[in-house]
Amino acid sequence: MLSTIRLFVSLTVSFFILAAGAWAASTLSSHAAAENTNVSAGLTLQVTDIRNDKGKIIVLVFDDAAAFQSDDVNKAVAYQEVNAAQGTLEIDFANLTEGPYAVSLFHDENGDYDFNMVDGYPLEGYGISGASGPLDEPDFQKAAVTLGTVTIRVFYLDS
């Protein structure tokens, strides 16, 4: 009986040591060490699948769920318009240093600064951080990204 208790306690202690050791090991990464010394912190977007060079890519970054949900330009924490280039475009937000952020962008091909739609059907390409596909409209929680490089794919529904 006593030896059974002793065995049980020994096994419990062992599992605790295993968990503590694995947790300690998970904190010991070169990534964590590099983060502390990294001076060029910020948000970098890799915008992929841009179909042509026409017009601009217009990007809105939000740090607020309500503003993100309503796509309110006036409440965005950052805004950039970049000349479109077919393929992949890298867009830096070096001054964004906190987060989490949600990103919403569209490809303004005709240059009218508006996301053109017909009967609620988009005529221009668009992309949202954290979206799994063209019909995915993630909420702020799902769209939220922290600092580093984030890939956003542009979807076109009219082609």
Partner: peptide, 15 residues
């Protein structure tokens, strides 16, 4: 896998 553990001298020693 529960934790994300990198392979370096420190984590190999713990392992």
């Amino acid at each position: 896998a529960l934790f994300d553990i990198e392979t370096n001298l420190a984590t190999v020693a713990i392992c």
